[in-house]
Write a protein that binds this DNA or RNA. Structure first.
Length: 474
DNA sequence: TGAAATGTTGGGGCG
DNA sequence: ACGCCCCAACATTTC
C-alpha cells in the first residue's frame, strides 16, 4: 500500500528546521509541501513591494533546500488545498498558525470546511514564543502595558518550545502546477532591487548565519550599542523572523546559549516586544487602521502631500531623518533608533497621520510585519498601547549628535554632506557660509533647507496634543 | 526608547 | 576672609 500523503502548507514559516507542522507532517507520511500566493491576502495590506521581493528569494532558496520539490500555487488557498487533497487522497493537512486577523478568518474557514470532509487540519505554533490567546491578565483581559505583559505574562508562564531539528526523514512529493516562482511575478518591474541584493543573503541558511554573527559580535555590547546606527550591534533578524526563515525559538535559546547578563536580557526583551505586538494585533484587530487610544481620533492631523513626499524621499533637510529614509529606500531596512527618529518627525514635526508612515514602511521594509509595524507606529505616535507619551518628541539634531557622533551613518546615506564637519552635520543651516562652501554644500541647491522649523513645529504638535480629550486616569 | 525649562549646587574669580 | 557673581554641572519639573 502506498504511503499516506500529508499536505503541508508553508506560510510565514519558510524554513525546514524548527518547523513544528512540517516535522509532524513528515513523521506520518509523504509530504506534499505547498506555497500558495493568496491573491486576497490581507485585503488592503497585501505584501508590499519589498516583502514580495524578499518572498521571491525566500521561495527560491526554500525550493532549493527541498531539492526542487516545493509546489507553488497562486489563487484561493481553500480551492487549491481542496484540489490537492482530492487528487492525492490526503487525510491530513498541516500548517503553522498565522495571527493576522484576515489570516485567522481565512484559516478558520478552511479548517471548518475540511472538518466537514473528514479531513483533519492540524495547526501548530511555529512563529511565536507565547501565543496571544494564552497570555492574559488574571481578569482574562489582554495586557496593554509591555512590562507586566513580558514579566508576568510571558516570563512567568511556561518556557517556550525548544527548537526542533531538521526532520530526519522528509519524503517529499512533487505535484503538477501551472505556476512557477517566476510566474508569481514577485520581483519588481522597475529593478530597484539590484542594489538591495548586496545587503541581504535571503535564505534559511542566510538567516542562521546572520544570527550566529550577531551572537558572536553584536550581542556583546547590545544594550548600549544598539542605539548607534553606525555600529553593527543590532541583529537585523527582523526580515528573517517575519518570513520565518528563523524562528524566535532559535533566537531565544541560541542567544541564551552564548550570552548572559544585561545584553542578553535586553535582546530577549526585544523578542518580547515582537510577542507583545502580536498579542496586541490579535486582541485588537483594528490595530493597523485605528488609534488604540480613541481620544486620538480627534487629533488635527495635517494633509500635505508635498511634505509627505519629501519625508518619503529623504529630502526633509534634517540629515539624520534623511539618512534613515534613504536607508529604507536603499536597503529595505532602517536601524531601530532611526525608525523612532523618522517616525517622531513624521507624526510630530510634520503633523502627518501615522498611517502614512505605516503605509510607506509597509511597502518599503523587507521586514514589513503587520503586528510590528502597526504596533510600532502607534507607539511612536503616542496613540498605542504603552506608547511613548505624546510629548516625547525627538529632536533630530540632538539625536544625531548623540547617536551618530562621528556622522558615519548619516554620511553613508546622505553623501552630499560627507565633507561637513560633525559640529554642523545635523544642523547644516547653522553652519557658517565658509564651512558650507568648503564642504561643497549649497542649501536649497544640493541639500534642502529644513522643510519645517524645528522649534515651532514642536510647539504646534504640543499645542495640538493639548486639545485632545484627556486620557482616562487609571 | 525625549527635550526644554527651571531649579539647585558648588567651585573659582574677584573686589 | 568674605560676599557676590558667574556658570557649569547636575537634578527636577513640565510639556
Amino acid at each position: 500500500m502506498a504511503e499516506k500523503v500529508n499536505i503541508f502548507w508553508f506560510r510565514q514559516d519558510l524554513r525546514i528546521a524548527d518547523n513544528p507542522a512540517l516535522t509532524h507532517a513528515a513523521e506520518s507520511g509523504r509530504v506534499l509541501a505547498v506555497y500558495i500566493l493568496d491573491q486576497n491576502d490581507q485585503g488592503d495590506h497585501g505584501p508590499g513591494a519589498a516583502s514580495r521581493w524578499w518572498l521571491h528569494h525566500s521561495l527560491k532558496a526554500l525550493n532549493e533546500s527541498l531539492q526542487g520539490q516545493l509546489n507553488i500555487f497562486r489563487g484561493d488557498p481553500q480551492t487549491i488545498l481542496q484540489d490537492l487533497q482530492e487528487k492525492y487522497g490526503a487525510s491530513e493537512i498541516f500548517w503553522n498558525r498565522c495571527y493576522e486577523p484576515q489570516s485567522i478568518e481565512r484559516d478558520t474557514a478552511i479548517k471548518k470546511f475540511f472538518q466537514k470532509q473528514q479531513v483533519e487540519v492540524k495547526s501548530f505554533n511555529g512563529s511565536l514564543l507565547w501565543e496571544p490567546m494564552q497570555v492574559l491578565k488574571n481578569d482574562g483581559t489582554p495586557y496593554r502595558v509591555f512590562t507586566p505583559y513580558y514579566r508576568k505574562g510571558c516570563l512567568n508562564a511556561d518556557a517556550p518550545r525548544e527548537p526542533l531539528p531538521v526532520p530526519q526523514k522528509l519524503n517529499l512529493l512533487k505535484s503538477e502546477s501551472s505556476e512557477t516562482l517566476e510566474s508569481l511575478g514577485l520581483l519588481p518591474k522597475i529593478r530597484w532591487d539590484q542594489k538591495m541584493e548586496s545587503y541581504w543573503e535571503i535564505s534559511e541558511a542566510g538567516g542562521q548565519q546572520k544570527m550566529q554573527e550577531f551572537f558572536e559580535h553584536g550581542l556583546r555590547d547590545y544594550k548600549e550599542g544598539r542605539n548607534f546606527p553606525a555600529k553593527s550591534c543590532v541583529s537585523r533578524l527582523s526580515p528573517y523572523l517575519h518570513q520565518g526563515q528563523i524562528s524566535p525559538n532559535q533566537a531565544w535559546y541560541g542567544a541564551q546559549a552564548k550570552h548572559s547578563g544585561k545584553n542578553l536580557d535586553h535582546f530577549l526583551s526585544e523578542l518580547g516586544w515582537r510577542e507583545f505586538s502580536y498579542s496586541l494585533l490579535y486582541h485588537f484587530p483594528d490595530l493597523p487602521s485605528r488609534n488604540l487610544q480613541g481620544r486620538f481620533d480627534a487629533f488635527p492631523w495635517k494633509e500635505d502631500s508635498r511634505l509627505l513626499e519629501r519625508w518619503k524621499r529623504g529630502q526633509t533637510g534634517y540629515p539624520i531623518v534623511d539618512a534613515g529614509m534613504r536607508e529604507l529606500w536603499e536597503t529595505g531596512y532602517v536601524h531601530n533608533r532611526v525608525r523612532m527618529i523618522v517616525g517622531s518627525f513624521l507624526v510630530k514635526n510634520l503633523l502627518l497621520h501615522w498611517k502614512h508612515g505605516e503605509r510607506w514602511f509597509w511597502d518599503c521594509l523587507v521586514d514589513a510585519d503587520m503586528a510590528n509595524n502597526s504596533a510600532s507606529w502607534q507607539w511612536v505616535a503616542g496613540c498605542g498601547a504603552d506608547a511613548a507619551p505624546y510629548f516625547r518628541i525627538f529632536n533630530p539634531v540632538s539625536q544625531g549628535q548623540k547617536f551618530d557622533p562621528e556622522g558615519t551613518y548619516t554620511k553613508q546615506f546622505v553623501p552630499e554632506l560627507k565633507d561637513l564637519p560633525a559640529k554642523y552635520l545635523f544642523s547644516p543651516w547653522e553652519a557658517p557660509d565658509l564651512v558650507l562652501k568648503n564642504a561643497g554644500v549649497q542649501l536649497g541647491e544640493n541639500y534642502p533647507h529644513p522643510i519645517v522649523p524645528l522649534r515651532e513645529s514642536r510647539e504646534k504638535a504640543l499645542e495640538a496634543f493639548s486639545m485632545l480629550p484627556k486620557a482616562l486616569s487609571a
